[in-house]
Amino acid sequence: MPAAAEGHLGQTIVFWVCTAVVLGGALLTITRRNTVVAAMSLVATFFGLAAMFTLLSAQFLAAIQVLVYAGAIMTLFVFVVMVLNRDEREPWALRGIVGKALGIGALGYLTLLGGTFLLGASALLTKQGAYHTEAPKPGWGGVADVGNALFTTYLFPFEAISLLLLVAVIGAVVVARTVKHAPPASQEPPTPPAHGEH
């Protein structure tokens, strides 16, 4: 399919650009001292991911990604960042660095192992013809398609998720609200807590 071959190249370019945006955004997110910058990098990551989702013919999920993550969740983050408004002097939590280094080493091992396994598995699956390499039929991954799955096969998880969201909303309100009988925060100047052991 020559069209597919052309599409292939275009897709490849888009894919690598998206990859760069996603991983770069992610790295910026975890390295920036400024929380707002980190949040914005995260938004970039989400957009990159959304683009990737479209590459995977998941248009609906791409839309959701932008709406929910970049829209709702990040708004929440930025809002909280503004409420707290505290930049870090020392962004890295170096306490227990030996243990954490071990943990990261373990992570590296897991990534390596998982990567090897995934590659092997997908190679096998490809070989066995388990993968669809051709373009899906139109409408696949659209609202109708996903909605069909959600309201038939996954009706119960869908309803459960709605309940979960309700609980989360109430819980968030309860956890974050100001305790009535506590003295007002203004009368108690926020003293920087002592560093070190309690």
Binding site: L56, S57, A58, F60, L61, I64, Q65, V68, Y69, A72, I73, L76, F77, V80, S122, L125, A130, Y131, H132, P136, W140, G141, D145, V146, N148, A149, L150, T153, Y154, P157, F158, I161, L164, L165, V167, A168, V169, G171, A172, V175, A176
Partner: peptide, 27 residues
Amino acid sequence: RARGDSNFQALAFLVVAVAAAEAAVGL
């Protein structure tokens, strides 16, 4: 996408919902 199965997208949708709840409570 590889398996041509749109059920995965439904699952991803649920994950997004859970992530939203998690972010709300976490924040």
